[in-house]
Each structure stands twice: as structure tokens, then as C-alpha cells.
């Protein structure tokens, strides 16, 4: 009896969620432009022009690579991770609890999967903008010797994607007891410092180097370096970076879909 309206394909529906998020982002255009352009300028200036003057010895396995060239891919990846983390934490809990737009979306034909897919796409777009601007600033600072350098954008985005398990965790939080602040201080901040970002992982005592091997940020930074001034490592390791980052991202994404679906179906 029912005249079911034409069903747009699943991916098309996910895009409507992305569209919504982009429209909501317009309210913060000024802030976003300022931070997207300001952050790379400040960081590359501080590290590349300031700190670099103190660092005269070689930092990587390749002689002739400046500290700026070494640190820039890691800073780009860190920026991508921070943008993604914002959405994986506040973006998720905002939609489920504080400004429960996911609940509203779910009362339309949208499914939990489409909602999460749309959000991930939005995060991808945000990371793309951030890393592209970062890359342009890197070019301006002369921090990209290789022609493959542009691929560091992909490396950075993979790094952000690999933190998707955080989104699945956020979707399980019922009450905000400062979990995000704890996560930020005890996991994210240490990772940004000890993932071979501002100094090579080999500088860490051997018993601490596992932090880097587990850290998506180390894999993303090393991957970015391969494109910016590499190759400096065996090809299998480069492939391993990509596989590791993709695997974490896909697992987190799928877990997030499941958790959100369970939470919306009360």
C-alpha cells in the first residue's frame, strides 16, 4: 500500500550529513581561517626559523636535511590529527548528547552508518583543508625538497584517520566527566612529543621506542618524511605505515558505526 519514495543511494545520504556539518561550520568561518593559516605559520616559524638555529647536527639518517624539513611533515600530521580529534571527541558527543542532531537525523531515513560516514567525510574535508594550507606554508618556507612532497598531505590525513577509534570511544560516553581533557593530556599531548615528531624516535631510550611504533602519529610523520625528502627507509616499512594507519582507521570507523547505532536505538 505504501508508495515508497525513491531511495537515494546510501552514499548520497551520507553526503547530506556532510552538507549539514559544512553549513554549521560556516558560523565559525573566521576562527577556522585564522587557525588554519595561523597555526602552520606560527609553528613553522618557531621551529624552522627559531629552534632550527640551535640545531646544527643532522637529525635524520639523511645528511643535508635541515631541521625544518625534518619537523615540517610531523607538524602537518599533528595538525591533521588535532583537527580530527576535535570531531572524534566533541563532534561525536555534541551530536549524540549536547546538541543531539544525530538523534534528529536518525528520525529521518538516515541510518547510524550514514550519519557516521557523513561525519567521517566531513572530517576528511576538514583535514584536507588544514593539511593543504600547511603544505602551502611549508612550500613558502622552502621545507619541501622532493617533488613527491605533496603526498605528505595524504600521509597527514591517514594519521588523522587512524585516530578514529577515539570516535568509537566517545560514542560510549554517557556523562561528561572530563574524559576528553584527560585523553588530551595523557594520550594526545605525550604522543605529539614522543612520536618522533620534533626529534627522531631513535633519540628516545630503547625501552620507550615502542610508543612510537604504536603511535599513528609516528607512522604518519615518517610516511610524510618519505615523500618530503625520502626515501630514508626500506619500502616495506613505508607500506607498513600505510597499512597500519588504514587498519586503525577502518577498525575505529566500523566500531563507531556500531556504537552509534546501538546508542540511537534505545
Amino acid at each position: 500500500m505504501s508508495a515508497v519514495t525513491a531511495e537515494p543511494r546510501s552514499h548520497a545520504r551520507a553526503w547530506f550529513v556532510t552538507e549539514h556539518k559544512i553549513r554549521a561550520m560556516r558560523g565559525y568561518t573566521g576562527t577556522i581561517i585564522a587557525t588554519t593559516i595561523g597555526t602552520p605559520l606560527l609553528y613553522l616559524f618557531a621551529f624552522g626559523v627559531g629552534l632550527a638555529t640551535l640545531i646544527t647536527s643532522n637529525v635524520g639518517p639523511v645528511p643535508g636535511i635541515s631541521y625544518l624539513e625534518f619537523v615540517a611533515p610531523a607538524l602537518l600530521a599533528t595538525a591533521a590529527v588535532l583537527v580530527a580529534m576535535e570531531e572524534y571527541t566533541f563532534g561525536i558527543l555534541l551530536g549524540l548528547k549536547w546538541n543531539p542532531i544525530f538523534v534528529g537525523m536518525n528520525s529521518t531515513p538516515l541510518t547510524a552508518r550514514q550519519i557516521v560516514d557523513g561525519l567521517m567525510l566531513f572530517i576528511g574535508i576538514r583535514m584536507l583543508i588544514t593539511t593543504t594550507v600547511y603544505f602551502v606554508v611549508m612550500l613558502a618556507f622552502g621545507a619541501v625538497p622532493s617533488g613527491w612532497g605533496i603526498l605528505t598531505i595524504v600521509a597527514g590525513m591517514l594519521g588523522g584517520f587512524a585516530f578514529a577509534p577515539v570516535a568509537a570511544y566517545s560514542a560510549t560516553i554517557q556523562e561528561d566527566r572530563g574524559q576528553f581533557a584527560i585523553l588530551q593530556r595523557t594520550v594526545i599531548l605525550p604522543l605529539t612529543l614522543f612520536s618522533g615528531t620534533v626529534f627522531p624516535l631513535t633519540q628516545l631510550p630503547a625501552f620507550l621506542q615502542w610508543i612510537g611504533w604504536l603511535s599513528p602519529l609516528w607512522h604518519a610523520s615518517e610516511l610524510g618524511r618519505q615523500f618530503v625528502y625520502g626515501p630514508t627507509e626500506p619500502i616495506w616499512l613505508t607500506v607498513a605505515h600505510v597499512v597500519y594507519l588504514l587498519a586503525l582507521g577502518v577498525i575505529g570507523w566500523q566500531l563507531c558505526v556500531r556504537t552509534v547505532a546501538r546508542r540511537l536505538n534505545k
Partner: peptide, 29 residues
Amino acid sequence: QLGVVPQQDNLDTELRVRDNLLVYGRYFG
């Protein structure tokens, strides 16, 4: 084919009034 008015409003407070209708309409394709 349903219209839902939940007990607790879940309008998007980050969007303006008319924009809330625009994004929602899009969900139906």
C-alpha cells in the same frame, strides 16, 4: 514518510532557523 516531533527539541543550535529546515529536508533526499 513520517514526521517526528520528539519530546526534547533536537534542533541544531549551531544553525539559524531556516537552515535547520534546509538541512533536514535534504535528509529525505
